[in-house]
């Protein structure tokens, strides 16, 4: 089990959180301007990297806020949490 550092509530057990998949997949500005293929890309395709992954979590059993985390998919270590809407931080630049 992970202990996840909610940006608002601090460290809490994973059981309090919901998972939201890859972060920074914006809802297309105008879905109707997309081809079927482009729309399908938005709907169904997500990255699956080995290593750092920016993903969304929601503190369902706490403050109910969505936020983003960068988690290493090999070690499960969460290097950073940050607010929804913030750009993905550059981990090389310290905390």
């Amino acid at each position: 089990m992970l202990i996840i550092d909610c940006p608002h509530c601090g460290p809490r057990p994973e059981t309090e959180f919901g998972y939201g998949g890859q972060a920074h997949v914006a809802y297309p500005e105008d879905p109707h301007a997309l081809t079927d293929e482009q729309w399908a890309q938005y709907l169904f395709y997500r990255d699956n990297p080995k290593g750092d992954y920016a993903e969304r979590w929601v503190h369902s059993a706490g403050c109910r806020k969505w936020f983003n985390a960068i988690r290493d998919t090999r070690t499960y270590e969460i290097a950073r949490v940050y607010a929804a809407g913030e750009p993905r931080p550059d981990l090389s630049k310290g905390a």
Binding site: A26, R56, R64, G85
Partner: peptide
């Protein structure tokens, strides 16, 4: 009930703040 509330929060917080 719970997943709909979470759904509404998801869209209001992350897409349409």
């Amino acid at each position: 009930a719970a997943r709909v509330l979470e759904w509404l929060e998801e869209w209001s917080q992350t897409e349409w703040p």
